[in-house]
Design a protein around this nucleic acid. Structure first.
Lengths: 349, 349
DNA sequence: CGGCCGTACTGTAGCGCTATAGAACCCACC
DNA sequence: GGTGGGTTCTATAGCGCTACAGTACGGCCG
C-alpha cells in the first residue's frame, strides 16, 4: 500500500499522487479530489513518514534532552510550564516534541538514533552521554540553562543577579545565618556547579559572603516539595538553626515552609524562606513566597523559536546565527521573609 | 558524510561499516575498532536515523496524543506522573516519547506526518482529527481513559466504581445537596461525556440519584487549582449552596478548598470536598483530601508496556492481541469530608 | 585429501518517497 | 500563425541505510 498503489488505481504517475498529498498547487483540483478519494477508498493514510523524512531531509520533530531525570521535568511546576510553552510554540510550526531519555538503555539510543530536525538541551550535565551524541550529529541545537558556550545558541536567565538580589534582601533584613537549600544530583560539585545551579549559588554567595553571613548548605535529591520538606526536617532536627533559607526552587521552598510549620516554626517570624522561579506554586503557599521571578513560558517560547529559526537556516543552507538570549529575573517580595525574630547580638561561629 | 565515506576510508564495504555500528557480532572485533576509529576521526556520528528508519521499518519513537491541550497534561500533577511513568517505561526499551499536538496547524500535521512505531491515545475526544489520523495509519495504538472500544487495546481505571463510592460516602454522611465540579472542554455533553469524564459523572449519579440527592453542576475549563478555585468562587457567590462538592480531580478539589477557605467557609465543617486521583497534591492540601485513589505510575507503565508488546507483535508479523486492562480505584477517606453542619430536616426541593 | 561447516566479509536490491528536469498541451498576443 | 509562457502531468535519479543471499577461506573430520 504505497503511493504507487494509488497511482495505478487512478491511472496517473506516482509523482502526481505525491503532489496531491504534499503540493496541492501542482495539480488540478479535480484530479486531486479523485486521487484523495481513491486513497481513502483504498485505506491509504498518506505518504509514509519515514520515506518522506529520508527524501525531504526533514522529520517534523524536535528533541528535548532533559536531565537528570524525566520525572523532574514533569514534577516541577515551573519546568512543566516551560515544557508546555515549548511544545505549544513548536506546534505553531507543525513540529512535535520528542522527550529524549538522557541515557540510552540498550542497543537503541534515542539521542543517537531518533530522527529529528534539531534539539533543545535543558539543564543537562555537561559531558552527559546524550548531550555529546547530539553534538556529534551536528543537529541545530539550543541550550537552555546551560553554562555559557560561545559556540552554542543559548537561552538563559539572569540567575546570578536574581539570586544575589534575593540574598541581599535577607542581608538587608538583618539575617546573619542563612541556609542554602540546593539540589544535589548525586555527584555535582555544588560550589562550582554548572549552569543555573552554579549561577544561583554564586549569586547568593556574592551577597552573603561580603556581608559575613554564616551559611549552612543542605541538599535535596530533586527539586520537589516532598524532598524539600525532608531536607528541611533534617536541618531542623539539628542545632544552630539559620534564621532564613534560600532555596533553589519554589518547589523546594514550599516543602521547606511545610516542614517548618510542621515543627511549630512560624514563617516568616521564626524562619524566612525564599524560593526561585515564581512558579504558580509560590502564590499558593501560605505565606506566599518571596521568590525570584523568571518567566517560564517566555523562556520556553524563546528557546523553541530560536530552534525553529536555526532549523530554517540550516535548511536554507545558511550559516547558523549564534545568539545568546538572557532573560531577566526580578525579586518578588511577598510574605515569607521578614526581619529575624531575635537578631543575634553578633555574628556567631 | 555517509557510511560509504567511512567504508572507502577504511577500505571495506559499506555493509561492513553498517554492521560495525548496528550488528557488532557480524565482524571481528579488531575490524570494528578500526572502523569506529575511522568514523570518529571523520566526524561521522553513526547511521543516519532517517535512512535507518526507512530501511528497518522502525523508528525508535512512540507518540502520545494528549488532549484537549498539551498544557493540561503538564499542569495536572497526576497527569505529569502518568506521563513520566510512560516515558520511563518506554526508555527501558530504548524508545523515546513524542508529544503530538492534537490539531495540526499548517501543512505539516504531526499525527499524520511524524514517523513513529506506535502511539498512546490519552483522554482524547473521540472524533478528534489527530485521533482519526492515527487510526488511519494503522499504527499499534493503546487507548488510555478512552471510552470502551472492543477493537482497541485499552487501559482504563474503575472510574465509575470509584466515583460511586465517593458519592456514596457523601450520601452516608447525610449530605442532601452536592455540587459536581467537572471539566468542560467547551462542547462536551457533560452527562453523556466520554471516557473517564463521563464514567465519573455516571458513577456519582449512580449513588446520588437513587438517594434523591439534589445536585448542582459547575464547570472549570481545565483541571487546575486556579480554575477550580474560580469555579467555586462563582458558586459560593450564589444562593442555595450545596454542603459537599464532588470534584473531577484533586487539582480542582484543591482549588475548591482554597476558594471555600478564602470566603470564610471551613472544610469540611461547612463544605465537604472530595477529589479524584489521589495525586501527591491530595496530601498537601489542608485539610488533606478525601479522594479516589488511582495509581498514575501503574497506569503509565501498563500502557507503555502494552504498546511495546503490540509493537513487538506487529514487527514479528503476529496478529495483534487486543487486551483491555482495568486498574482498580479505591476511596481514600481523609479530612476534607464530614457530616454536613446543619443537616436539613428533610430533603429540599 | 575431499567434503563440510562456521566465520568474516561483500554486492545488490530495495525501503517509499520527493526534487528536478522535462514533456505535452492550451492560451493568448503580436 | 508562430512564439512565448502558463499549467498540468511524468520519468528518473537519488535520499542513506539494511536484509539477504551470496563468496571466500580456514579448519576439522573421516
Amino acid at each position: 500500500m504505497t503511493l504507487k498503489t494509488v497511482a495505478e488505481r487512478v491511472g496517473v504517475s506516482s509523482m502526481t499522487v505525491s503532489n496531491a498529498f504534499s503540493r496541492p498547487d501542482q495539480l488540478s483540483a479535480a484530479l486531486r479530489e479523485t486521487i484523495l478519494a481513491a486513497a481513502a477508498e483504498l485505506g491509504y493514510a498518506g505518504p509514509d513518514p519515514a520515506a518522506r523524512t529520508l527524501a525531504r531531509g526533514a522529520t517534523g520533530t524536535v528533541g528535548i534532552l532533559l536531565s537528570p531525570s524525566l520525572r523532574y521535568a514533569f514534577t516541577d511546576e515551573f519546568s512543566a510550564v516551560f515544557l508546555s510553552a515549548i511544545a505549544e510554540e513548536l506546534a505553531r510550526s507543525g513540529l512535535a516534541l520528542t522527550l529524549l531519555p538522557p541515557e540510552g538503555a540498550g542497543v537503541v539510543i534515542p539521542t543517537r538514533d531518533v530522527a529529528m530536525d534539531g534539539a533543545i538541551v535543558y539543564s543537562c550535565r555537561l559531558g552527559a552521554d546524550g548531550l555529546e551524541q547530539l553534538h556529534r550529529r551536528r543537529l541545530p541545537l539550543v541550550h537552555v540553562d546551560q553554562p555559557y558556550d560561545p559556540a552554542a545558541i543559548s537561552v538563559n536567565v539572569e540567575d546570578a543577579d536574581g539570586a544575589r538580589a534575593a540574598a541581599q534582601h535577607l542581608v538587608d533584613l538583618g539575617h546573619r545565618h542563612v541556609g542554602l537549600l540546593v539540589v544535589d544530583g548525586g555527584d555535582l560539585d555544588l560550589d562550582l556547579g554548572e549552569g543555573s545551579h552554579g549561577d544561583r549559588i554564586r549569586g547568593w554567595r556574592a551577597a552573603l559572603d561580603p556581608a559575613g553571613v554564616e551559611t549552612t548548605t543542605i541538599t535535596a535529591p530533586v527539586s520537589s516539595e516532598d524532598e524539600g520538606a525532608d531536607a528541611v526536617r533534617a536541618l531542623l532536627a539539628g542545632p544552630d538553626l539559620p534564621t532564613a533559607l534560600l532555596c533553589f526552587s519554589d518547589a523546594l521552598a514550599a516543602g521547606a515552609v511545610h516542614a517548618a510549620q510542621e515543627s511549630g516554626l512560624r514563617v516568616p517570624d521564626d524562619l524566612s524562606v525564599v524560593g526561585f522561579d515564581d512558579s504558580p506554586l509560590a502564590r499558593r503557599v501560605r505565606p506566599q513566597l518571596t521568590t525570584v521571578r523568571q518567566d517560564a513560558a517566555a523562556k520556553g517560547r524563546t528557546a523553541a523559536a530560536a530552534l525553529v529559526e536555526a532549523i530554517a537556516r540550516r535548511r536554507a543552507g545558511a550559516e547558523p546565527e549564534i545568539t545568546h538570549v538572557v532573560l531577566p529575573t526580578e525579586l518578588v517580595i511577598r510574605d515569607s521573609t521578614a526581619t529575624p525574630r531575635a537578631p543575634e547580638p553578633a555574628a556567631g561561629r
